[in-house]
Design a binder for these strands. Structure first.
Length: 462
RNA sequence: GGCUGGGUAGCAAAGCGGUUAUGCAGGGGCCUGCAAAGCCUUAUAGACCGGUUCGACUCCGGUCCCAGCCUCCA
């Protein structure tokens, strides 16, 4: 029984799909004017884990994650770079897709772009104006009138009076109320623009997501997610727009992913304390990074540090080491399935609001079990190893062969390493341990660890 | 100030009203020429103060502290 923490109710709730034969999920994706950073990575990975689990739980999942490819930041960056917005956004969309592959993120079913969804935004604006939720200011901008929507604030737990107290007044705008937000913004000279019944301009950010989500998933759908910073105002505004325009409930379950912090402070573009996914991939492989991101619960803050990444790397290495050189008969695999409840507990952990730390702890139990059986019952150890890989795959880790993973990224060729190992074996045969240890140290300096066993010497990366 | 969360052993991170979380790092042991890996074993917890209870890290109240949102942000 799947339970999900719902921001709307501030509670973990049993998830009941609107239509069990097709679950709809929408996640606010990236604004593509720069490389994705670790905060984006966390959202990508979290919803990947979540949708992988949902796909095993429900017959069909429709996962939509949009791309915001028009907004002020994109326009500003394109002016800075002296390139048109499509050149800019296409470049970063490509980079984002590369990052996703490194992190083993499965593609969403739909990845709509704002610039390709303008028509849907027109109809939403028209509907909002017609129903009295929106108005056009003298400057041409179309605004949503927040006070016309009685449930405004229900997601973020805010009330209009408190918001008003701290509201900033935007001098350039023509809002009736400082809290009103823009649905359609008039283009300034030389800005990208689309012609519309309200004049040439571009859509407001909040509008995009309302239009794209309902277009793909219907006016009322199951789950909407994003980073915690989107709760207010972005998601609050989406609710106001969608429920206003469509006159029905918008989303049942709202999910928000916690921040990635640096020194206990939010990583963000504005604070300029961010690391891009690519920065991190220079030092750690994508799977280590993914492991790190799922090693804490998705709603908790996650502190980014080299120490924590190194710890993630060691932990993942332990899992791979446990699966090394094992295989299993189908009989042993059946027996393991029958005798132990690892898989059941693993699924229960994910059913409990996607509790990945618990799911991982079960993988370590299996690893220990396999290690223990390795000497006595290699077939069973192999079956446990297969189970470990299978469950790991459910959350997008353990995707490599153990040897491939443990030897990944070493400069020296296999032949050279084998030659060194042979030299060392010869020295050891002569009990020339000084020479033997020297060779081992040489390889260690190149990041290669030698391991002697009765079956000979093998190596892995440090 | 308003609204959310949170404070767990050296570090990271969970569940749980009474019984080993888990990983990394540390101590001791087995194994090894020595290592590595692995196994066995071990120490170090629950911000503070009260309350409820036979029993609280877990529930309730208060205090202190931290983070986030309230402005673009995942």
């Amino acid at each position: 029984m799947l339970k999900i923490y719902n921001t709307l109710t501030n509670q973990k709730q049993v998830f009941k799909p609107i239509n069990p034969s097709s679950v709809g999920i929408y996640v606010c994706g990236m604004t593509v004017y720069d490389f994705c950073h670790m905060g984006h990575a966390r959202v990508l990975v979290m919803f990947d884990v979540m949708t992988r689990h949902m796909r095993r739980t429900f017959p069909k999942v429709k996962y939509v994650r949009n791309i915001t490819d028009i907004d002020d930041k994109i326009i500003n960056r394109s002016i800075e770079n002296q390139e048109d917005i499509y050149t800019l956004t296409n470049r970063f969309i490509k980079a984002m897709h590369e990052d996703e592959i490194a992190l083993n993120i499965l593609k969403p079913d739909f990845e709509p772009r704002a610039t390709e969804s303008i028509d849907q935004m027109y109809s939403m604006i028209a509907s909002l104006i017609e129903k009295g939720f929106a108005y056009q200011g003298k400057n041409g901008d179309v605004y949503y009138s927040v006070k016309s929507f009685k449930n405004y604030g229900k997601l973020s737990g805010k009330n209009l009076d408190d918001l008003k107290a701290g509201a900033r007044v935007d001098i350039e705008s023509d809002k009736r109320d400082p809290l009103d937000f823009v649905l359609w913004k008039m283009a300034k000279p030389n800005e990208p623009k689309w012609s519309s019944p309200w004049g040439e301009g571009r859509p407001g950010w909040h509008l995009e997501c309302s239009a794209m989500s309902t277009h793909h998933l219907g006016n009322h759908f199951d789950i909407h997610g994003g980073g915690m910073d989107l709760t207010f105002p972005h998601h609050e505004n989406e609710i106001a727009q969608s429920e206003g325009a469509n006159n029905c409930s918008f989303v049942n379950t709202w999910m928000h992913v916690g921040f990635v912090n640096i020194n206990d402070e939010k990583m963000s573009k504005s604070l300029n304390n961010f690391f891009t996914i690519r920065d991190v991939l220079e030092k750690y492989d994508g799977e280590t990074l993914r492991y790190f991101l799922i090693s804490s619960h998705y709603r908790s803050p996650l502190n980014f540090s080299d120490e924590n990444l190194a710890s993630a790397k060691s932990a993942l290495t332990r899992l791979y080491t446990a699966t090394r050189g094992l295989s299993a008969s189908s009989k042993a695999m059946d027996q393991v399935t029958m005798r132990f409840d690892y898989e059941k507990r693993f699924n229960e952990a994910l059913d409990d609001d996607f509790n990945t730390p618990i799911a991982l702890s079960i993988l370590f139990e299996i690893a220990k079990h396999a290690n223990t059986e390795r000497e006595d019952d290699k077939d069973q150890a192999g079956a446990l190893s297969e189970l470990l890989k299978k469950l790991g795959n459910h959350i997008g880790i353990m995707r490599y062969d153990a040897d491939d993973y443990l030897k990944m990224g070493i400069e020296l060729s296999d032949a050279k390493i084998d030659e060194k190992i042979y030299q060392r074996e010869s020295a050891r045969a002569l009990k020339d341990f000084a020479m033997s240890d020297q060779i081992r140290d040489e390889l260690l300096a190149l990041g290669i660890i030698l391991e002697d066993s009765i079956n000979g010497t093998t190596w892995r990366r440090k």
